[in-house]
Design a protein around this nucleic acid. Structure first.
Lengths: 334, 334
DNA sequence: TCGACTTATTAAACCAATTTAAAAAGTTAG
DNA sequence: CTAACTTTTTAAATTGGTTTAATAAGTCGA
């Protein structure tokens, strides 16, 4: 029996990996495929070594269901993100779990050289990497760097193709804010049509990632989430009010000016998108400061409409987003 | 042969009505169904009187394709919207074309009474109305009126159920801004993942409708698009700057203050959603004024990212959105 | 006007997933 | 400990769509 990768196989595989369902019945329900069909796909996957039988589910009054688990070691992925002076990377199994991590310093602002070095080294150490996801603090469109004040060597480069030809593996390039909000949204299992905004104040100007119905909002020119340009005051922008604040070493308690600016920022999103939650990063704020922001927001907007204000773990969310994208690539390319 | 309404029938019907495709080949391509399958469904629809054969397409070098058209008279729909002192309605055929229209004055702010009167009268005149769509300038969640400063008699009413039990037909209730942006988006054939914002300044406070990937953004509490609350200045909101303007009879040329406020509004959407286009209504602005707004926006945002600024015909867009929703209901209920 | 070419339609064979029914493997009440 | 009941799994039959191939109906150039 030939292993022909079909839509059905992919659908079943996605349920095993992404939703970690483990019984035929649950996968059958989730995919709206019939029991025999799912079973047949699983048999093929077991033949190929992609899936293992793994004991039984607890019985609920009748014959207990067999439990199937995806072989995490079947293949691997590499996720990385590039900052101003360092590249951080994590090797993941094909379900997204971290297996190994590390960093690589960037010398003389040669981001491209450093990236190439990490890729070569990691792929040499681990042979069965079948996809790569890369995060950058830059505007990206279709794998090409549109605007990169941080990395001169990346300017106007088709980074996706560069990585793919250097590594001979499929790659995805993602903006940092988009990766973070995508990661947060998917690790926190947003139900259906929720929308969230992830705000990172950062060292080099703030940005926001927007997730609606599980989909990233990229905008007409990749400019979405460039909140530093928001005209929130007569003569100054959001960036103006925040930077005068953030010159002091973080974490310093927020000044009234910064609190007011953040309140207006939340109000702005509420009066436009009315999102379910707005996530701030642990790098910028601590939990106790959220109450002040909420209060500042309510000077402009009735309390009933205020979104939930939450703290996200920046690095984890960033990597979670990259991992999810990477696993998606892996599942497509098997 | 029994006429069993299946997913296939629905898919084919949608292409005929919503995308007005007319040949088997084009429908087959759009639905990704095979030629024989589409053909079979069409035969059943012809049997049922829902579809007619209608001559041939112009040949493109070979045998010309038969043209199939949906029977517009197969059933009808009723669309209406309620304003402060008047209800406007349009009777439509099942492809959305207007067949008849009219208005009903509202006496003593008895919006509910007037609505009931129109419904009774119209359904009495036209027997084969199989769905109703209703637009209101109020916050709606799931057919229930959440907040209705305009219509005291609607407050907290499950208007969808009220209409359905009064008329014995399926109904959909939609917010005015949402209907307008939905109508604009679908009459102007937005390609794929475009996003647009429709802005209406109105007599009773401005509002915006947001359409992303063809989907309406409703928000956590139905508060999305309540742009009057935007904090665009040190001590005043968008509403403040606009109303001082709009006390004069419209259309008066825009003052510098209003221009500045509108420029900031566009900048705000650009720095968050970065939409492809922002639509203003013909009730509020004329085409020549858009240039001033664009200019005002570029005081805050680089020109490359500015969305297209366009004028929409408010009443037509509003009705187009209602018609589209109504046709959707009709197609579901056949 | 004929013949080569294009494109659309029809008919028949085929196949893949669903449905149905029977068997297997548990649990629980008496 | 057995009988009655649940729930999962397997096997067989059916269905409903696709694929393939043959046919029909046009265009265009010589």
């Amino acid at each position: 029996m030939e292993h022909t990768t079909t839509d059905l196989t992919i659908a079943v595989r996605r349920q095993l990996v992404l939703s970690n369902l483990s019984t035929v019945a649950s996968i059958s329900e989730a995919t709206r495929l019939s029991f025999p069909t799912v079973k047949k796909q699983l048999e093929q996957l077991i033949q190929a070594g992609e899936v293992f039988e793994h004991g039984f589910e607890d019985s609920r009054g009748g014959r207990p269901a067999k439990r199937y688990v995806y072989n995490e070691q079947f293949t691997h992925g590499l996720t990385l993100y590039v900052e101003k002076t360092v590249i951080r990377y994590r090797l993941i199994d094909c379900t997204g779990k971290t297996i190994d991590d590390g960093t690589q310093l960037i010398l003389d602002a040669d981001h491209l050289g450093a990236l190439g070095a990490v890729l070569d080294r990691q792929l040499d150490q681990t042979s069965d990497v079948s996809a790569i996801s890369l995060g950058v603090a830059a505007a990206v469109a279709d794998g090409t760097i549109i605007l990169a004040p941080e990395y001169p060597t990346f300017a106007h480069l088709d980074l996706k193709r560069w990585v793919e030809s250097r590594t001979d593996r499929p790659a995805v390039i993602e903006n940092d804010m988009n990766a973070a909000v995508y990661g947060y949204g998917h690790t926190h299992e947003l139900s259906g049509d929720q929308s969230i905004v992830y705000i990172y104040l950062g060292k080099n100007g703030p940005g926001a990632g927007i997730l609606i119905n599980g989909q990233l909002i990229r905008g007409k020119t990749g400019f979405s989430g460039e909140i530093s340009f928001l005209p929130l005051y007569d003569d100054s922008t959001f960036l103006d009010r925040i930077t005068s604040e953030r010159s002091a070493p973080t974490p310093a308690p927020l000044s009234d000016a910064a609190l007011d600016a953040l309140g207006r920022l939340v109000a702005t999103f509420t009066a436009t998108l009315n999102p379910h939650a707005i996530i701030f990063s642990d790098v910028d704020l601590v939990d106790a400061e959220l109450e002040g922001i909420r209060h500042a927001c309510q000077r402009h907007i009735p309390a009933a409409h205020t979104p939930d204000l939450l703290i996200g773990i920046w690095e984890e969310d960033y990597f979670a987003g990259l991992a999810r994208r990477c696993v998606g690539l892996i599942l497509e390319s098997i």
